[in-house]
Design a binder for these strands. Structure first.
Length: 262
DNA sequence: CTGGGGAGGGGGCCC
DNA sequence: GGGGCCCCCTCCCCA
């Protein structure tokens, strides 16, 4: 059984902002100044299913603009909340589906239209309408608001979605159409299969710039990069100790954090 | 017990 | 609308 069907995420209170987290992870926050930025490979591993090219690593050219790690506010739950830094003022990084390349949020302008689900305000009705649709996939909708929305139910599990596309995507996790020709293991998406195939081929296209290690998975490289950082991404709210992984923080908390704040 | 690597899944964004 | 890709997250296992 897929592991993710067993346990859902511990902390999902904040909607992830990928644009923001990408900025933090790969550009600024979690790489101490003593380390240059990691060279994450660009999107050139898409052909792993059919061939296994040697992937060159092109260091990202963006300069370091580090946020002083020592000044990071403690965050008892999950990642350090760097969104509260001066680089992301309230409302500036709108959670408008992560499309932060758009003009600044209307929050900074004269807001006229207020969202009925949250505190956001917009200067145009269209912007408000677009924003409010983002609430319609949230299970905690007001009943009267969700009652008129179509619901697509998964026939394999109790989950339901507001769009057929989302449901189809979910159903793939049940049907597992991507099958490894080597071992027969099935996956929901092709890129998952590609990552799995690397376990057979030994391909490790994601190399650490700080040591000789290489990884088959970008997420694992990212986690590994945390080990090179003196200030880890996840911080205990009680003892301010930092950890490279959320799971380590969970273990730390589960074992009973008795360390006084130092 | 802790830290880290390996493997994998889900949701979301972009093209 | 679908596919590709990304990020976040989790669990398992081992040193």
């Amino acid at each position: 059984m897929p592991r993710s069907f067993l346990v859902k995420k511990y902390f999902s209170s904040k909607k992830p902002c990928y644009r923001e987290s990408l900025l933090l992870d790969s550009q600024t926050a979690f790489v101490p100044e003593s380390f240059p930025r990691a060279a994450l490979p660009t999107q050139n591993h898409s052909s792993a299913l059919t061939c296994y090219p040697a992937v060159p690593f092109t260091p990202l050219p963006a300069p370091l603009s580090p946020i002083a790690p020592a000044s990071l506010p403690p965050s008892p739950l999950g990642p350090l909340d760097l969104s509260s830094s001066p680089f992301s003022s309230s409302g500036e990084e709108d959670e408008d589906n992560g499309r932060s390349s758009d003009p600044p949020s209307p929050d900074a302008l004269q807001a006229v239209y207020h969202c009925m689900y949250c505190a956001k305000s917009y200067t145009s009705l269209s912007a408000l309408s677009h924003h409010q649709t983002s609430h319609l996939c949230v299970p905690s909708l007001p009943a009267e608001a969700s009652a008129s929305r179509p619901a697509f139910h998964c026939k394999h599990c109790p989950k339901e979605y507001t769009s057929l596309g989302a449901l189809k995507m979910h159903i793939r996790s049940h049907t597992l159409p991507c099958v490894c020709t080597t071992c027969g293991k099935a996956f929901s998406r092709p890129w998952l299969l590609r990552g799995h195939i690397r376990t057979h081929t030994g391909e490790r296209p994601f190399a650490c710039q700080h040591c000789t290690r290489a990884f088959a998975d970008r997420s694992n490289l990212r986690a590994h990069l945390q080990t090179h950082s003196e200030v880890k991404k996840y911080q205990c709210g009680s003892c301010s100790r930092t950890f490279s992984r959320m799971s380590l923080l969970h273990k730390h908390n589960a074992s009973g954090c008795s360390s006084p704040t130092s």
